[in-house]
Nucleic acid binder design. Sequence first.
RNA 1: GUAGCCGUAGCUCAAUUGGUAGAGCCCCGCAUUGUGGUUGCGGUUGUUGUGGGUUCGAGUCCCAUCGGUUACCCCA
Length: 409
Amino acid sequence: MKSKYQKIKGTFDILPPETEVWQHIESTIHHICQQFSFQEIRTPAIESVDLFKRNIGDGTDVSKEMFVWKDQSGKEISLKPEMTAPVVRAYIESGFFRKYPLCKMYYIDSFFRREKPQKGRQRQFNQFGVEAFGTKNSEQDAEIILIATQILKKLNIDNTNLSINNIGDSDTRIKYESKLRNYFNDHKNSLSELSKARLEKNPMRILDSKEKEDQTIIKNAPMIKDLLSTEEKEHFSSVLTHLKGLGINYNENPYLVRGLDYYNGTTFEITTQSTGSQNALCGGGRYDSLVEKMGGPETPAVGFAAGIERIILEAKQELGKKNIDIYISCNDEKYTSKGLNIIQNLVENEYKIFFDTNKKNIKNQIKDAVKNNAKFMITINQEISVKNLISKKETNVSESEILPFLKNQ
RNA sequence: GUAGCCGUAGCUCAAUUGGUAGAGCCCCGCAUUGUGGUUGCGGUUGUUGUGGGUUCGAGUCCCAUCGGUUACCCCA
């Protein structure tokens, strides 16, 4: 049948039985985050445009891709394109910096970016993430990464690669970018066409160019770590020591940068080999100056965000069958109210039932029950019969005997 | 945003150089079965994504549009 309406580009329905996969992933996230005593935070779907433009960076792609509109009073509103800025806003607005000097929170939510859709890149997409405020100690960086790896492990996702880097503070990055631009300018003639185009706009992108001719030039490019302060270097090496101690394999990538302006210090990314170009499962790092910039007290912070759609592409798990306990047949309308009472009673006693309100004939109901792995079938007429679908034994019982009978099986 | 590929029944896909739109699965029913996961028979579903155009004739060719997908870009 042709539907009169179509879903909006870049959005998708999550239909049964696939919803079970989502439920499984979400409950794993809740469970692990709570094991680490991170508490869930939920924020509104909409925020004022300024919150994002000013803090994730006016020139970043994310801020250009926001869904923005003016409401009836002329205020500029945006659907949230990411969660860190809203979490920081809520953290400051609610005075959590006083209530929780060390504040650890996590979230699972939908976000919106008006990008060109692709597999693993939708316009409404789902992420979970964690944020820890109040310490700049390296063990906090390590704990954040540990949570990410634990969740992936629990979801049976392997073949992942953790890349890590330290990008210094914003001054360091500005210095680095100009140093890099100078370097590549000196070698401009040997660069690929693609990279020449990147030179002005985003010289750091050249660093992970796939073009063969760029490789040797990249090899000798200046590294950001040569510009780091002693303190930053120490912090970085201590994070790496923690990871080694935890047995978490990583790949030190001196060229890993992040797309949002607020990051500094440690940055990391978990990628997978199997998904094409949308291979970043998880990305994060420190943002030690964001809280202050947004009007709160000086508060260091670190966190990550992970894409649930991309994780689902990796976590191929089998979908369970319905596994109902009891299939209910009540085809004679004279006994409908009796049937409904029995159902109510069964559900209150924690049985999972399926009531065939469509009243198929009994033979097909049995087939249907077996197909859905039901253990019992209860047929309600004047008599009530309970059929054990495994032993195939059928027994007539009175209404009050149903529960004791089932318990005896 | 730029470029390429794709769009046929609920699902997976067929349809020879443009010539009457099909199959399997699923679903529903009937029958069969050592009488509940078998097997057989029958049935429903499509203005071939949409709108134009070329042609005697378009699923097939052209244009536009919508959607998907791949690469670039970027990111989770």
